[in-house]
Nucleic acid binder design. Structure first.
Lengths: 236, 236, 236, 236
DNA sequence: GATGAATGAGGATTCATTCAT
DNA sequence: TATGAATGAATCCTCATTCAT
């Protein structure tokens, strides 16, 4: 909840609170924050059930139980909603699982690292399906629509920096490429996972880990991974 | 499966085929056939530059240089365009690279098989970017919109049947899962490939092959792949 | 079949046949006549199942199994089709039941006259549902759209002239009014009749006759109709 | 049955009725309520001048002086407009003439009842020509398009229940048939009335009453109507 | 004559966004 | 703030009609 940027507001309220009398604006802010949360929750629902393009601002407002006008009081346009939602989800992720994670893991062997990263991330996506919608950049592949791609970009960066800790022998360009690949694999794998349930879902999770492990393992460190173990559950 | 015709015409003309290669009804069709091709080309353009959902029939007509009415003379709706375009691309692919391919390859070692399949397929997609748009099913992930998903379904089936020849030890359910995974990996990898050019593109191609090889190789045959070679160009 | 006007043609073929060499044009005419009949049959179908306004020329052409262009080779527009169809149905009616009928009946008592007129007319409408569509003038009531209202006008005139033979004591204006009333009653009654089947239909027929009989009977001749009998089947 | 509300609004506003006559949510509605009235007036105009089918939502919006979008803010489609308009007209009729009417009249002799019912109803239709458009159900006869036929259905029910009070000797099925007949006669008669003006209109009114009286009178009560009088003004 | 292609205006409907209150 | 009204361009699609062959 801290660290929310909400940076897309027109002008008005920005960073009010440094000056005295901060309490009254606070309360207003509070109502506003509630509205924003409401709207973002609605947007998450709508995005995840119809996709970004098909999501209409009217639908979001309706889902949030407010008028379209109210929505535009907080967001200048549809994209800003996606951006803010992405920010919040990113934060929520970091707060929930990420904090501990960003720093460490580098010591972990690849398989454990994959477990440590993928499991919470998958869980988070299952619980916040909008996240996966936003992780996919624009719906038209290959086109980076400078829009709500913060989630995409942030996650990619994260992946890259994590991998950089493992692929120490490789030149930056190649690490970047591998990170891109690993990330898109994760994203589609995730779609497949989320499209299934129960045992089938679990099986897809296992499969995804296997793929990534086998892809990355030979590249790790001095490429010397003698007892190349699969992650926790790598079936023959 | 091959030889799909336009199929979207009303009915009517019929009975004009008493003699083989009847030319009378053809002459009329000529202009129409040309228009259809024109429209499908336009649709391919529009689909690949905006995606299926965002593609408007008016935009397709405009791109084709005809009026909206003309488009609807040949296609009852946007989906029919996608379906027909998919059919044509599928056919074109099969005619160009596929014929020789469907039957054989089973004898090839995995790495050669990947080269043999992926290279032409990537080339084909680069030359026909709409194909990759159609290969991705519906844009909202997890939802199979039985619509224009023929391309998706056909390709997936193909992948499955090819893999079945390699993953002889595995139960059907798992083969299916692996095929799904391999296919989505291919699709996203392809997006990444198409989003780049020149050496970078080549590098991504190599990367994609590596991923698939490493994923599948341990699963092949008796799982006994002693000298696990990468495809042609598997870099350390 | 004689007496067809087909008067809406552009120019061309009109009344060719008076000059020698009539046979060849005849044959052409024959094909043309067949097409026209085909188109009018189709139009009758479409009109009676969707109404005039909703009927599309394309639908008529399709139903006739010809191209739109062909339709317009014979009729300058949709209305002309209705007009010609009306003419033909009017003629068909006259030929079938009407010939004998126009002249006589005046001697018949009202009830018998109603039977003699209504029964064949109802039968004819049941067999040619388009007739009733055309009998109703324009679909927007109260507006006489100089269009295909020939059927309407002709039938009304017919009604008027028949009634004039019975309502000998009344001034013209009133006869006209009564004819109008009787005619619209007939038309709606007919709709009701055609909307039902079997016994229910028969019951509605009886009801319609009753209405008209009771309406007209007091007005007949010297208004001296002592034993005011209902038509054949006037139930208590 | 009475008291039908607008009903076409989303939902939302709600809970604004804790205190009676809450004014807050009303003020917003004021403009909207006015627009709705405006749109319905426009719809009435358009419906009565072109008929329901030919009436376009764009035409209605234009007539109302608003943009198409505004129309759709209040009505989801053309039919909803017809329904709401029908409801309003039905209510208006009931409020104006109907209240006193529904209950009583049963004691009146047939001729007075006809006067008592038809006169106000005709006046109302003359003042609200759209009412007659809606009273006619679907424009293609014989087809009940469950749509905006509330007016049709309601009026028919009314007719039926009134007649049931007079036709006490007849079985239900027959009363229903007679009601149907009487109603369609009224509707067409009304069209004829509305298509004329001044004395001619009055004459048609008289004629319509005569028809209905003569149709129904023999069926009334014990069928014993000795001195069969016409309504107020039954001319020889 | 016949065909089928072509047109373009028009119809219903949606939607991101703005405005008055 | 919040509302809901307002907009108008854009969407998909239809239809009467015309034109080239």
């Amino acid at each position: 909840m801290s660290g929310t940027k909400s940076g897309t507001k027109r002008e008005g309220d920005s960073k009010a609170g440094s000056s005295p009398g901060a309490t009254r604006p606070r309360r207003r802010q509070a109502r506003g924050e509630a509205r924003i949360a409401q709207l973002l929750d609605a947007a998450a629902d709508v995005f995840s059930s119809t996709g970004y393009t098909a999501a209409s601002t009217n639908a979001i407002a309706r889902e949030a139980g407010v008028s379209p006008g109210t929505l535009y009081q907080f967001f200048p346009n549809k994209e800003a909603i996606a951006i803010e939602l992405g920010d919040r989800l990113l934060n929520r992720w970091q707060e929930t699982y990420g904090a501990a994670f960003v720093l460490s893991h580098i010591e972990l062997p690849l398989d454990e690292m994959l477990d440590a990263i993928l499991d919470p991330l998958i869980t988070f996506n299952v619980e916040n399906p909008a996240f996966s919608v936003l992780m996919h950049g624009s719906e038209i592949p290959g086109v980076i629509t400078q829009e709500h791609d913060t989630v995409h970009a942030t996650m990619l960066t994260r992946v890259e920096s994590i991998l950089a800790g493992y692929l120490t022998e490789l030149p930056a360009g190649q690490v970047s490429r591998i990170a891109n690949m690993a990330f898109v694999i994760f994203k589609t794998g995730l779609d497949l996972i989320m499209a299934h349930e129960g045992d089938e879902r679990d099986a897809y999770v296992k499969e995804l880990k296997t793929i990534l492990f086998r892809y990355l393992e030979p590249l790790v460190g001095a490429s010397a991974l003698p007892d190349s173990a699969c992650p926790k559950s790598c079936e023959a």
